[in-house]
Nucleic acid binder design. Structure first.
Lengths: 111, 111
DNA sequence: CACAAACATTGATGTGTGTCAATATATTCT
DNA sequence: AGAATATATTGACACACATCAATGTTTGTG
């Protein structure tokens, strides 16, 4: 801490408390992986919004278990939803979750 | 990959290539830490936009070397800029970098 | 000059995680 | 029922990283 005599700068009053910071960090950790970002990108760019794992392993260059792992992480964080139909599991984006992260990253102007 | 007979879903054409994914992931990794998020929050909420390390260690509950480490990571990623004046080093936010991350996270609608 | 304050650097340590091989489960087809 | 395909799970491993104690460096003060 600064010396009591000369002030260094204005005292800090952070708008983000510990819990909020951990929660947001957890969501960002999920997104902070190249493979998962590309999965999100795939789901966002595909026409009908649905993609199964079998079509992602090759473009990602990852093994099937690894892709399944990333899918699970994304789903548990609320970024995608999954539905099993017949032999395949279809995954689609949950735009609201991505938007909530975007909103949390907005710099709020001091009045 | 899917069998050649029955199509699983539309072929994927991800809009995010490997390099872009790694670059964005690297930026997100920097933000995906509670301490660094709180530092960013502090810099965003303080009146004159400047905070020195000595005033962040106590509210963060972290040691001075740890705070210095996080500051360095944030600076090297372009999220903050630092200026040494007399005995103290003042840090301020670079809003453009945060905005670029926000923009990259935007879900672009398929036409 | 000697001491203290602010910050940076180094080294060590524990924890988390991305990846794959192997295996398990579920579904479809013959 | 048996085989093949799609996906999930488990276990193991290597690597990254957040943290702190100790120390170094710079700047101001007695």
């Amino acid at each position: 801490m600064k010396s009591s005599e000369v002030t260094c700068c204005t005292p800090v009053s952070d708008g983000l408390d510990g819990r909020q910071a951990v929660e947001l960090a957890d969501l960002l950790k999920v997104l902070a992986d190249p493979a998962r970002l590309r999965i999100v990108s795939m789901l966002a760019s595909v026409a009908d919004g649905e993609v199964c794992v079998c079509d992602m392993t090759e473009p990602l260059g990852l093994s099937q278990p690894t892709v399944s792992h990333h899918i699970k992480v994304l789903r548990e964080a609320g970024f995608i939803s999954s539905e099993k139909r017949s032999k395949w599991v279809y995954h689609r984006l949950v735009p609201a979750q991505l938007e909530s992260v975007r909103a949390a990253l907005a710099v709020r102007q001091p009045v």
